[in-house]
Nucleic acid binder design. Structure first.
Length: 95
DNA sequence: AGGGTGACCGTGA
DNA sequence: ATCACGGCCACCC
């Protein structure tokens, strides 16, 4: 995988403001990644030191295996979820 | 070379 | 609202 792209993706994730969320697709677009899948890949293996919990699927729901933890972290910074779904219309990050 | 596997996405039923 | 599909891309057998 292109090292350049890898860093750009980390960069964009790091730029998501506290109390806001983004999606794999948005991150991919901003970082110039060819597919949202690449973003998930980067976060899974090199996202521990990033605000990875601010990245959700386009549905506003987190990926299954990390859902509990993720929603907990979001709640801690003021992002409330209805069940397991975050309202993107309200919290989605756009400059 | 070819098939399987994901922290994915949009569309259509 | 949910589900299946096809498309997507990097990796690893």
């Amino acid at each position: 995988m292109d090292e350049e792209l890898h860093e750009r993706i980390r960069e964009v994730v790091r730029a998501v403001p506290r109390g806001r969320v983004s999606t794999y697709g948005d991150i991919a677009a901003r970082a110039g990644a060819s597919s949202p899948r690449v973003v998930g890949k980067v976060l899974s293996e090199d996202g521990h030191d990033l605000p990875w919990h601010r990245v959700l699927r386009s549905t506003g729901r987190p990926a299954e295996h990390i859902a509990r933890r993720q929603l907990e972290l979001l709640r801690a910074e003021g992002v409330l979820a209805e069940g397991d779904r975050v309202d993107l219309g309200e919290y989605r990050w756009r400059d």
